[in-house]
């Protein structure tokens, strides 16, 4: 058990900074309280949860979030894979592409959200694609595309690492065996890089689940599409309803956990320590 001496401080701190606020969230979620302390604060049991779970707007937000997650992940995987394949074969360009590939990820999400929103509301995309007033939903779509843009590079890096681990003879052997390009992709390359794809999917999905900047920047009164994380934010930090916000936070955490619990076994994510 010598190992635990090295491990204990980190685990302890990690538990304190995660379990403590989660515990507080659970406790808060059973009360009706505001961050300011205005209004009477009282224990309401699971009322907050029943409110949330029976709320149409919450489930709409969850559905919108999941749709965004699905679209973002699929787009990032497809684009990332295409770019990774191209980058792998053009080793001459590596010094440049290595920097280029992670540059979007370095741009703050809030900046990306603002400029992508501007692109469709007043900027170049309006002229390029003949957009009419896209409204808050259109702007939200644009910021989501911006998120895809930001995340594609990192996805490509992950997939490239996975691709580089596919032995070249595996591919040449398949060629020698007469596999078509399509068969090589579906039967050799993709299965062999499945671990990388699995991790990229999980990581990007949970990252897409928590994006907040785009929804914050594009929200307008009467907007028809809102995301779950935005609703949590709005409740907690605009309405200051901490009790309700905490209950939503707990639900959001459970949602993330469910998503992970779905993805991890389905994709057989495993990383041996």
């Amino acid at each position: 058990m010598r190992g635990w001496r090295w491990l204990a401080p980190a685990v302890l701190v990690l538990l304190v900074v995660t379990v403590w606020p989660i515990g507080r969230a659970v406790w808060l979620s059973l009360t009706r309280s505001t961050l300011t302390g205005a209004g009477d604060q009282r224990f309401v049991g699971i009322d907050n949860y029943t409110d949330i779970l029976s709320s149409r707007s919450w489930w709409l937000a969850v559905a919108a979030t999941l749709a965004i997650v699905a679209v973002a992940v699929v787009l990032q995987l497809v684009l990332g894979l295409a770019f990774a394949v191209a980058l792998r074969r053009l080793t001459v360009a590596w010094p440049v592409t290595r920097v280029l590939v992670l540059l979007p990820f370095g741009l703050l999400a809030i900046v990306s959200a603002v400029v992508w929103r501007d692109a469709v509301t007043s900027g170049f995309a309006v002229d390029w694609f003949g957009l009419d007033d896209v409204g808050p939903t259109g702007a939200l779509v644009a910021t989501t595309v911006g998120e895809v843009w930001r995340g594609t590079g990192i996805t490509a890096v992950i997939l490239l690492a996975g691709l580089l681990r596919v032995p070249t003879t595996l591919i040449t052997s398949a060629i020698a065996d007469g596999a078509t390009a399509r068969q090589r992709l579906t039967r050799v390359v993709l299965p062999a890089m499945a671990p990388a794809i699995a991790v990229a999917t999980t990581y990007r999905a949970l990252d897409a689940l928590r994006i907040l900047e785009g929804p914050l920047v594009t929200d307008a009164p009467g907007a028809s599409v809102r995301t779950a994380s935005f609703v949590v934010w709005d409740t907690t930090f605009s309405s200051f309803e901490t009790g309700l916000g905490a209950a939503m936070s707990v639900v959001l955490l459970l949602l993330a956990g469910l998503l992970a619990a779905f993805l991890v076994p389905v994709l057989r994510v495993r990383r041996v320590v």
Partner: peptide
């Protein structure tokens, strides 16, 4: 290669790990 229909065994086996 597909058209040549030749079977080849590779020195490093080229087995599919999955």
């Amino acid at each position: 290669p597909r058209g040549r229909d030749v079977s080849m065994v590779f020195e490093d086996y080229a087995l599919h790990p999955h």
